[in-house]
Design a protein around this nucleic acid. Structure first.
Lengths: 354, 354
DNA sequence: CTGGCCATTTAAAACGTTATAAATTCAGCA
DNA sequence: TGCTGAATTTATAACGTTTTAAATGGCCAG
């Protein structure tokens, strides 16, 4: 079908030998069209006749054409890559992996790939962000562990570079985010402890500096203030502390007077460590004390069904973040569509009397 | 410094305006050299005078040049990308994240990037591999959950596409792998149970179909045969089973006659679930029964110090896999350098009498 | 001074794609 | 017949890099 009349400057046009990946030229030669036409046809440009579009698509499918990402990227400047900043802290309990699964799910069927940007390449996360944006390594960025005045958010906002955070900031410029409503979680969890008759709940706070830590504390404080009961915020440890440290701290606390009688735990490891520490002191969960915890895997409730849990679906979160970022990259500027506050599923049992 | 005598076909050569990323041409214009020379100089080609090389490097550093990956990739055909097949099963306890951290560490300082290829895009892992190799999306591949006759390994070996598996196969063609010596682990762990006076150890086997499951079982069987004691391989559950199921199965087993008196657990979740199930039956760890388990985070030993554990460092494993793959891509063909069997660190305590 | 060889530098082409602008066809109509 | 404009299609030039082959200039033997 190829027209032999027009001069081919190359000995072999690429259609016969060079059985490498098919390119636009391969299709052009098969259909007898020009490369440009094929390119436009495949991108469904309205200026190409419907007939041609269909024929080109058929041939493309038949020979298994898929566009060369490097060439597209070189020409258009867009990378079709979404970067995730991977934090070493996220190794716990599949946190990072769950989120990545979700993002990948959202990216499925799009031209975008997911690439992991481990932050220990650069000493700080900001440097990593700087590097990525300056070198155009991605079209969008996703990251967690957001701080109230997060410098990464500042930088990216200034640059107009698309991103989504897991967690909110307190910066005045609105930006896309997906966040779990940790205030409500913490508030409801603490209220639940009080409803069960506990009179001195303790909070193991989030790691200092992160926005969600404040939300957790705020929810906790609101609940204890409403009830007018005693409370304690355990010093020296947080949700990032290794299980061993949490356990030791609990044990140590019980050697002192006026210990708490219940715990609001923002994570599974934390809850498990607390239980172990309490058990060391001879105290039994559900009898001498209670725990309400956030769960992100299904481990805790299987191992310790006594702990009442509220589930946070990180895979769904990742999927939301992916979707939001795609919208942002697609040009959506309506902030309300780019900000998601996910509502905790409070188990029905929480409603019933303790 | 730019020579104004030579005809510039473009109005603006790119040096002044267009303050985008600096390219080879930017450097060429600054130094007065040709683009080709700059390219060669930066790749330390011996045909470029040492003097020029030094000058070019200096200018490049000064203006913050970094090569355009898309252009390199288009020209050379090499992607400078390492792909990791992410399996949904790997969400547990940070398995996937740890390995990725390790790989990323190995890739640090090289031109390679790490990109995550979630396998739920294609229904089977083989299709994913097919897609990746056919479309040249990476220069090398890393994956886990290796089967004795793994079809991915077959395919990649046939294609001559560089890869490293986490785990071995039983295929005759040797291929790069990094594996933990699960036989030795299982053998030593089981021997330890027996040394502690247990007379009927039970094995919770690895998920059927994967190579390491066989190794675990082989080590276990070797130990019980040597000791001539009774044993049991728990049916109906494996290391992939949700904690709840393992717990139920343990409880159920203890309702029947002749239950085991100790457990060899290949994972932390499994160990925790077992303990919970036993506790349901009123049995106490270290008194009525013992467990030896493999640990990949530091959770288990902090929560349940009674469990004796053998630690497997997944981040180190990832780092090894990254290194091995880089060697393979670099042309290393000596199989012995590309196959790593990591030896379990048996704790000193194992040596002492029970 | 010519020719040849070395060391160093260079021009031109190519990788596969898309954007720009121009060309081609054809119908309708004066 | 020749013109206009709409509908399609096309040639050409980039994007930034590397590869191939060729050019340049210096130096020495003849």
């Amino acid at each position: 079908m190829a027209d032999p009349s027009k001069p081919a400057h190359h000995e072999d046009g690429g259609s016969t030998a060079k059985r490498g990946k098919p390119t636009l030229r391969t299709i052009a030669e098969i259909t007898g069209l020009a490369v440009t036409t094929v390119s436009r046809a495949l991108s469904d440009a309205p200026q190409i006749s419907l007939d041609t579009r269909k024929r080109v698509r058929e041939v493309a499918d038949e020979i298994g054409y898929s566009p060369d990402r490097a060439a597209q990227r070189l020409k258009t400047g867009r990378t079709n890559v979404i970067g995730v900043l991977l934090d070493p802290h996220e190794e716990i309990l599949g946190y990072g992996t769950s989120i990545m699964s979700g993002i990948a799910k959202a990216l499925q069927g799009t031209a975008f790939h997911l690439i992991v940007m481990p932050n220990f390449l650069n000493s700080t996360n900001v440097e990593a962000v700087n590097y990525i944006t300056r070198n155009g390594m991605a079209d969008g960025l996703i990251f967690s562990r957001t701080e109230p005045l997060d410098p990464r958010v500042r930088l990216l906002s200034d640059l107009g570079f698309p991103f989504v955070t897991h967690g909110r900031t307190e910066l005045s410029t609105p930006h896309p985010y997906v966040d779990y409503d940790n205030f409500t979680f913490s508030y409801q969890a603490t209220k639940r402890l009080i409803a069960k008759g506990r009179r001195k709940p303790a909070l193991i706070s989030g790691p200092a500096g992160f926005t969600f830590a404040g939300h957790l504390q705020h929810g906790f404080m609101t609940a204890v203030r409403e009830a007018g009961c005693a409370y304690e915020i355990l010093s020296g440890i947080d949700l990032d502390s290794p299980a061993g440290e949490i356990r030791d701290r609990i044990r140590q606390r019980y050697a002192e007077p006026g210990p708490p009688d219940s715990f609001m735990c923002g994570g599974e490891v934390c809850a498990l460590a607390t239980i172990t520490g309490m058990s060391d002191c001879g105290l039994t969960l559900g009898r001498e004390y209670d725990i309400v915890a956030k769960q992100t895997s299904h481990l805790l409730s299987a191992i310790q069904p006594q702990v009442e849990t509220i589930y946070e679906d990180l895979t769904a979160t990742g999927e939301d973040m992916g979707r939001v970022l795609l919208q942002k990259i697609g040009g959506e500027s309506d902030a309300s569509k780019l900000q998601l506050l996910l509502c905790p599923q409070i188990p029905a049992s929480f409603g019933t009397a303790g």
